[in-house]
């Protein structure tokens, strides 16, 4: 409790992008990512054009640039890795700012950076315009394996409950004078983690009973029948279609 009423990634709104059915947006992002990944790394202008496309979507969805930049932090580990490649890479070398770098390494780093960034921004836009639970409804509509969708749904629902339980266990430890300071305290924390696992497992069993009591048969019933019109599919798929057109241009 106490947390905001929306997940951090989601920006409530009523833009064209917000109103598109989730399955259209999911498929559009996936197709866009495939086109981006399939683009040869030498085509700098194609990547620039893809970035312009995403900027256009952000404007249409009224997602501020600051929101996107902040969420891009998730990419940092990949960026660090990408920066390492030219340093440790083999083959022909070149000197940049007094640093000897591998040329194939530089290409590989650029390849990772450009494609990952475009993919991440596209995902951020999806998450900013679609509530997490609605994304899962979309996944259900796209006939993703029902078991995976259900697992994701329960994670979404019980994350806060489990975090809360974790917090209570920490309070209980600390109120009896325990404070994790060094490695010798790891066994205590490990036992707490074990207890948390068992509690969650037991909760899982009780939830399953509750589901059975209301007629659960293994499949999630369709509650939101969000069907997409041809026009909505057209709007959503405009993004990957434009990317594909850029990809197909003679360079």
């Amino acid at each position: 409790m106490g947390a905001g009423h929306h997940h951090q990634l989601y920006l409530p709104g009523v833009s064209v992008v917000h109103r598109l059915p989730p399955q259209c947006k999911l498929l559009a992002v996936l197709a866009f990512a495939i086109v981006v990944v399939a683009t040869p790394r030498e085509r700098f202008s194609a990547f620039a054009a893809y970035a312009v496309l995403l900027a256009a979507v952000a404007v249409a969805a009224r997602v501020p640039a600051a929101h996107i930049v902040r969420r891009m932090a998730i990419e940092i580990p990949f960026v660090l890795f990408a920066f390492l490649i030219p340093v440790i890479g083999l083959g022909e070398r070149t000197t940049v700012l007094g640093l000897s770098l591998s040329v194939p390494g530089l290409w590989a780093a650029w390849n990772i950076l450009a494609k990952a960034t475009l993919g991440v921004v596209a995902s951020i836009l999806l998450a900013a315009t679609t509530e997490p639970r609605v994304i899962l409804v979309g996944a259900q509509r796209l006939r993703l394996p029902s078991l995976l969708v259900q697992i994701a749904m329960f994670m979404l629902r019980y994350m806060d409950v489990i975090v809360d339980e974790m917090r209570r266990m920490r309070v209980a430890r600390e109120s009896r004078g325990f404070e994790a300071r060094d490695v010798r305290h790891i066994p205590v924390l490990a036992r707490s983690a074990g207890a948390l696992f068992i509690r969650s497992y037991e909760r899982g069993e009780r939830v399953h009973l509750a589901m059975l009591s209301r007629g659960y048969t293994g499949e999630m019933p369709i509650i939101h029948d969000i069907s997409a019109s041809v026009r909505q599919w057209g709007t959503a798929l405009a993004l990957p279609a434009a990317a594909l057109a850029i990809w197909g241009l003679p360079w």
């Binding site: 639970r133 009780r206 939830v207 009973l209 509750a210 009591s213 659960y216 048969t217 509650i223």
Partner: peptide, 27 residues
């Protein structure tokens, strides 16, 4: 037979109140 469990967190497993109430009838 409508069973109401002791811990509502066990009973309310869907993402929203509306979805949860809809779960039984939808099944």
């Amino acid at each position: 037979v409508g069973l109401v469990f002791q811990d509502p967190d066990d009973q309310l497993f869907m993402p929203t109140v509306r979805d949860d109430v809809a779960f039984g009838p939808a099944n």
